[in-house]
Design a protein around this nucleic acid. Structure first.
Length: 465
RNA sequence: GCUCCCAUCGUCUAGAGGCCCAGGACAUAGCCCUCUCAAGGCUGUAACACCGGUUCGAAUCCGGUUGGGAGCGCCA
């Protein structure tokens, strides 16, 4: 039997890292097993579903490279099918009409709560066949009254529920539209889902879904309920930290592989390995090894991993990412070779591609703004002499490349009997505007002769004033 | 309230009865390297929630306590 998994988000909120991780686990398992991965949008709640949320799901999955083999399916396009199944269940007696009003149900709940009971539908219409004029009925599933249903969960092991704890849930509203738990059941059945991998907030829904599946003559799939992701403070994930749209991670300069790598390690491990390529993840991941406990989202480790991926990727792979970030800063550059050089020079001093772009602004444009504090320290009458000398030696270089620059500044420092820093820092401030940059030889090589000399001249002029 | 789930360093985790006075990673502190900042290397601080059992022996098995979480909608 080939494995079929699915990711079934509802577009009522923006796709965040919690959703992405369950998507990742489903995707990884399908890829690992050579199976199929289906994307399904659970948009039956038309009130709260938004086009924006659907867009984030589609764009986010595409950005992450979590490609689906089927879909996206939309539940709102399958209403005819749901109606058909409901008619069948009514005919077979596994579902029935309930004419209770919302007010009556509300009252029932209130009284049960007062008696410190678990609020649930008592089943008053379960065996009635009459109707109540003036009330549009809902359709309820006829859940077994006794016995148990055991969820053989891949992550949690067997979890037993008493049928007596379960009430008859509504599968169609009084306006005829089907509800979530029912649609999931029909879809999972119709789409041949073999493994349902989802958040463990759904564990409590599972026995009902299994009962419905069995009532329809289907065999329940294998379930894997993965733990939730908490915020850095250990509390529920909120907008404050990780519960932002996945696309925001793109804007912040994270690499898709790094985010995926971070997420796969949250709740799962493979020996002492921390850094995984996509291929390594697919080869090593096993849903059976996922932990049971919730885990807190740690932005610092994500940052570290992102840099690890930046340092391990080939520069060419990162060019589009750097270009995207430069674009956002209003800098256009079509020189791939230059961008690759910048990536090589900058990647061990930036945690994100956004940070890399920001740190690299001085490579572009004619003029730069010099940080007053840096100038006060390094562009002074005292450094003026050596800076002038350095300028002249650089100007005289026949070959404008890192080794030549390196030799020139080293020679000057040796001759003057000073540390290299004394020569290099003024140059660095002059050409970058600040005290921090990649090694000076590499930086100047990338910057080019014209810009370097022009900026040093400008700095010298500033000292003169 | 009821039902279900969960519990190792601050965080992510290793650990499936002796290999553990608990290992790795992030973070953090110190040192080294060094033209700045990083990256890198080395060293350190730091955890089995608690109480009972079972056993020659428990982080590992069992029970309870405590603490977290989820569900209990004509939401998904």
């Amino acid at each position: 039997m080939t494995v079929v998994t699915r990711f079934a988000p509802s577009p009522t909120g923006l796709l965040h890292v919690g959703g992405v991780r369950t998507a990742l686990y489903s995707w990884l398992y399908a890829r690992r097993m050579g199976g199929k991965f289906i994307l399904r949008i659970e948009d039956t709640d038309r009130e709260r579903s938004t086009d924006e949320a659907v867009r984030v799901i589609l764009d986010g999955m595409a950005w992450l490279g979590l490609d689906h083999d089927e879909g996206p399916y939309y539940q709102t396009q399958r209403f005819d099918r749901y109606r058909e199944v409901i008619q069948r269940m009514l005919a077979e007696g596994t579902a029935y009409r309930c004419y209770c009003t919302k007010e009556e149900l509300e009252q029932m709940r209130k009284e049960q709560l007062e008696r410190k009971e678990k609020p649930r539908y008592t089943g008053v219409w379960r065996d009635r066949t009459d109707a109540r004029p003036g009330v549009e009925p809902v359709i309820r599933f006829k859940n077994p009254l006794d016995g148990v249903v055991v969820v053989e969960d891949v992550i949690h092991g067997p979890v037993t529920f008493q049928n007596a704890e379960l009430d008859d849930l509504i599968i169609a509203r009084s306006d005829g539209t089907p509800t979530y738990n029912f649609c999931v059941v029909v879809d999972d059945m119709d789409m041949g889902i073999t493994h349902v991998i989802r958040g463990d907030d759904h564990l409590n829904n599972t026995p009902r879904q299994m009962n419905m599946l069995r009532a329809l003559g289907a065999t329940p799939p294998v379930y894997a309920h993965v733990p939730m992701i908490l915020g850095p403070d250990g509390a529920k994930l909120s907008k404050r930290h990780g519960a932002v749209s996945v696309l925001q991670y793109q804007e912040e300069g994270f690499l898709p592989d790094a985010l995926l790598n971070y997420l796969v390690r949250l709740g799962w491990s493979h020996g002492d390995q921390e850094v995984f390529t996509r291929a390594e993840m697919i080869a090593a991941f096993d849903i059976h090894e996922v932990n049971k406990a919730a885990s807190a989202f740690n932005p610092e480790k994500l940052l570290w991993l992102n840099q690890q991926h930046m340092m391990r990727a080939s520069p060419g792979e990162l060019v589009p990412h750097l270009r995207y970030q430069l674009d956002r800063l209003g800098i256009a550059c079509d020189d791939d070779k230059l961008l690759e050089g910048i990536i090589l020079a900058q990647r061990e001093r930036a945690k994100t591609m956004k940070e890399m772009a920001e740190n690299s602004r001085f490579f572009f444009g004619a003029e730069i703004a010099i940080d007053p504090k840096a100038a006060a320290k390094h562009l002074t009458p005292e450094t003026r002499g050596s800076l002038t000398e350095a300028r002249d030696r650089l100007a005289a270089l026949a070959d404008w490349a890192a080794p030549a620059v390196h030799d020139a500044v080293n020679a000057l420092a040796t001759e003057k009997g000073v540390g290299l820093g004394k020569i290099v820092q003024p140059i660095r401030v002059a050409i970058s505007g600040g005290t921090v940059s990649p090694p000076i030889d590499i930086t100047l090589a990338l910057l080019g002769r014209e810009r370097t000399l022009a900026r040093i001249d400008a700095a010298l002029k500033q000292i003169a004033r």
